[in-house]
């Protein structure tokens, strides 16, 4: 058929309805109002619910990023330091052993620095648990040597352990690997927890969009039927409905993301009241890094994509079920 087909023009007889004059009436506006009325779809409800979902998603991602930062700091500190402990058992020349160990450490490649903890400093470390009473003077307090590792050329710790065992039996090497492994395991668990939370949020968002799409289609059933009879294809109807869901998803994502961003800013401001150790080990405010910006941007993008894909599939299914 002729794509631009219109009713016959030449030779059309008077219909009895037209006045026969050539007075022309013009089209006011763009002559292309939205075929599917916008006000009938529950977009405001969907947007509110989606914005709440996006806010929760931003919180989950933000919490995950904060945890990752904290764990990175912890593991980085642990990985760059080992400790040698010289036990103060009877018959051991502690000071001599400390000197021997220090010598071995200085001669070991990959060790950046060593810090011999003085007996006074070691007692200071125990005071919070044992008090300042004279009991500490009677106890055989082990000596500690903090060893900083050159991360670019780390030493062979197993070889060092063996050397110390042979040369200085009272010395033991603590590489803190157990703590590092536990921290990484905890970080993994938190990551999976965040993924589970985000998956639930995405599922809830998908369900919301499906219901909203069905509601929009049902409300506009009459209009859609007329469009079908006028020769519309599924793709035309889907396009007419889809752009609105796309816009709703984007708006909801932006609102949720902005609210989430504000929440982290407020948390950052409130962190001033936290003590330094807590801030150092538990709370790491999100900085303005590109990864953190990406987290706030990715939520609106994902919300839009979820709305788009879910609505498209849902519309197709509803259309097939309807007609």
């Amino acid at each position: 058929m002729n794509k631009n087909a219109g009713a016959e023009k030449p030779g059309r007889p008077a219909s009895g309805f037209n006045a026969g004059d050539s007075a022309k009436f013009e089209v006011v506006g763009n002559g292309r109002s939205k075929v599917i009325p916008e006000a009938t779809a529950p977009h405001m409800t969907l947007m509110t619910a989606m914005a709440a979902m996006c806010y929760l998603a931003v919180l989950a991602i933000g919490a995950l990023l904060m945890t990752d930062t904290a764990v990175d700091n912890w593991t980085s500190q642990i990985a760059s330091q080992v400790t040698v402990q010289i036990s103060a058992a009877d018959g051991v020349d502690v000071d001599g052993d400390v000197e021997k160990v220090a010598g071995i450490l200085r001669a070991t490649p990959g060790i950046a620095d060593i810090d011999v903890v003085s007996p006074a400093a070691a007692r200071k470390l125990l005071e919070p648990w044992l008090g300042e009473a004279g009991i500490l003077d009677d106890l055989p307090i082990p000596r500690l040597i903090n060893v900083s590792i050159d991360k670019s050329l780390p030493p062979d710790l197993e070889l060092l352990r063996a050397t110390l065992a042979t040369e200085v039996p009272s010395a033991t090497l603590d590489t803190h690997r157990r703590w590092q492994a536990e921290l990484l395991s905890m970080a993994d668990s938190l990551t999976w927890l965040a993924i589970a939370v985000l998956s639930l949020i995405a599922t809830a968002a998908i369900v919301l969009v499906i219901y909203a799409t069905r509601a929009a289609m049902e409300v506009n059933r009459e209009v859609i039927e007329v469009l079908y009879l006028a020769g519309a294809r599924d793709s035309f109807i889907a396009r007419e409905v889809l752009w609105r869901f796309c816009l709703t998803g984007l708006k909801a994502g932006l609102i949720g993301s902005m609210l989430g961003f504000c929440t982290f800013v407020v948390l950052g401001l409130g962190s001033g009241r936290l003590s330094e150790p807590v801030k150092a080990f538990l709370y790491h405010p999100l900085d303005a890094s590109s990864a953190n910006y990406a987290a706030f941007i990715v939520v609106p993008v994902v919300a839009t994509v979820i709305s788009l894909i879910t609505a498209r599939i849902s519309i197709s299914r509803v259309l097939k079920a309807m007609f």
């Binding site: 009713a7 219909s15 089209v27």
Partner: peptide, 10 residues
């Protein structure tokens, strides 16, 4: 527009 004129709805 022409068809609207023809059916008297111009």
């Amino acid at each position: 527009l022409e068809l609207l004129d023809w059916v008297g709805l111009d």
